[in-house]
Simulated assay, not measured.
Amino acid sequence: MKEAMLYEKLQDDKVRCAVCSHRCTISEGKRGICSVRENREGTLYALNYGRAIAVHVDPIEKKPLYHFMPGTSTYSFATVGCNFRCQWCQNWEISQASKPNRPIAGALISPEEHVQRALEYGCPSISYTYSEPTIFVEYALDTMKLAREKGLKNTWHTNGYMTKETLDAIVPYLDAANVDFKGPDDTVYEKYCGGKSGPVMESLKYLYKAGVHLEITTLIVPGVNDQKQQLQTIAKFIANELGKDVPWHISRFFPAWKMPDAPVTPLETLEMARKAGEEEGLLYIYLGNVF
């Protein structure tokens, strides 16, 4: 446990968290939406600091990052918790494990230990992934700074729902990011994820402008964001607001968590998305979760 960064003390021992775009106002003894940040007597604490719930060595392409250090392995870790509740989450066992007010699970591993392990395993990078790194930003940032000192690269796989304040803090140490982007549709985000699209688009523009290597993943879910116009809008945003050189990973949905009976995304839908990207001039389009 560690005092959280980026929060404001309010009256009556309340606090307002500024790490993600929910900007939760949290009463004494309560937690934010992520359920890993708790107000204790007017001080906000990151309960998940130093508690790793998942640690693996992965191909960098699994993040997925296809244009950043291809062919290398990346040391990856996460804590429990997430600021979203995406109904199709494949890692819900860890992303939702702290909700609503459950104990914070995880092995005690320090930032120094993570960096040392990455070096021992011969990994040239560390990835903050599996759950949402924004909600363990204190833990991630301490690790990122040490990793940079040792010549390691830092990558995030994120939903992009962080604040500008968080981006300001991490970008000096962030080399690459893959951002999940469901599309510029508040209805999709509000109904299925518990957020809005605007902050994600602002994060994408910030990262691209800052020179962080950026790739985008869109999971196409039948009945959610699979209409031709929706896919064209996503492709147009990438091409016009970011750059045609930003890789777009179009990922196939398989039933998971609260959508066990939803159909698998037809290959025809993925091809429709690919065509939309090609029509907008995107240079790098990849289909994911297909053989």
Score class of each variant (00 low, 15 high):
Ala4Pro: 07
Leu6His: 00
Tyr7Gln: 02
Asp12Leu: 02
Lys14Thr: 09
Lys14Val: 08
Lys14Trp: 13
Lys14Gln: 14
Cys17Arg: 03
Ala18Phe: 05
Cys20Ser: 02
Arg23Tyr: 09
Arg23Asp: 12
Arg23Ile: 09
Cys24Lys: 07
Ser27Val: 00
Glu28Ser: 15
Gly29Phe: 02
Lys30Phe: 03
Cys34Val: 02
Cys34Gly: 02
Arg40Phe: 10
Thr43Ser: 14
Leu47Gln: 13
Asn48Tyr: 06
Ala52Tyr: 08
Ala54Arg: 02
Val55Glu: 13
Val57Lys: 15
Asp58Val: 11
Ile60Cys: 03
Lys62Asp: 12
Lys62Pro: 04
Lys63Pro: 08
Gly71Gln: 10
Thr74Gln: 08
Ala78His: 07
Gly81Met: 11
Cys82Glu: 04
Gln87Phe: 15
Cys89Asp: 05
Gln90Tyr: 05
Ala97Met: 05
Pro100Lys: 05
Asn101Gly: 11
Gly106Met: 09
Ser110Asn: 08
Glu113Trp: 06
Gln116Phe: 07
Ala118Tyr: 04
Pro124Cys: 00
Ser125Leu: 15
Ile126His: 05
Ser127Trp: 13
Tyr128Val: 00
Ser131Trp: 01
Ser131Gly: 08
Thr134Arg: 01
Ile135Gly: 02
Val137Cys: 07
Glu138Cys: 03
Glu138Lys: 04
Tyr139Ile: 03
Leu141Ser: 00
Asp142Trp: 03
Lys145Leu: 02
Arg148Cys: 10
Arg148Asp: 05
Gly151His: 12
Gly151Lys: 13
Lys153Tyr: 15
Asn159Val: 00
Asn159Tyr: 00
Thr163Leu: 11
Thr163Gly: 03
Lys164Arg: 14
Lys164Trp: 01
Glu165Ala: 13
Leu167Trp: 10
Val171Lys: 08
Tyr173Asp: 12
Tyr173Thr: 15
Ala176Gln: 06
Asn178Tyr: 07
Val179Glu: 11
Phe181Thr: 06
Lys182Asp: 11
Pro184Phe: 14
Asp185Ile: 09
Asp185Arg: 10
Asp186Cys: 07
Tyr189Asn: 02
Tyr189Leu: 01
Lys191Met: 06
Lys191Thr: 11
Lys191Trp: 01
Tyr192Met: 06
Tyr192Ser: 01
Gly194Met: 01
Gly194Cys: 04
Lys196Val: 02
Lys196Met: 10
Lys196Ala: 07
Leu204Thr: 05
Leu204Arg: 03
Leu207Thr: 06
Lys209Tyr: 04
Ala210Leu: 06
Gly211Pro: 05
Val212Ile: 03
Val212Cys: 04
His213Asn: 12
His213Gly: 08
Ile216Thr: 01
Ile216Tyr: 04
Leu219Pro: 09
Val221Tyr: 09
Gly223Phe: 12
Val224Cys: 12
Asn225Arg: 10
Gln227Met: 15
Lys228Asn: 14
Lys228Ile: 08
Gln230Ser: 13
Gln232Asp: 12
Gln232His: 14
Ile234Glu: 06
Lys236Tyr: 12
Ile238Leu: 15
Ala239Ser: 10
Ala239Thr: 08
Asn240Ser: 12
Glu241Cys: 00
Gly243Lys: 14
Lys244Ile: 09
His249Phe: 14
His249Glu: 06
Ser251Leu: 12
Phe254Glu: 12
Ala256Arg: 14
Ala256Thr: 09
Trp257Ala: 10
Trp257Ser: 08
Met259Ala: 03
Pro263Cys: 03
Pro263Ile: 08
Thr265Asp: 01
Pro266Ala: 01
Leu267Asp: 11
Glu268Asp: 14
Glu268Ser: 15
Thr269Asp: 00
Arg274Met: 07
Gly277Arg: 01
Tyr284Cys: 03
Tyr286Thr: 13
Tyr286Ala: 04
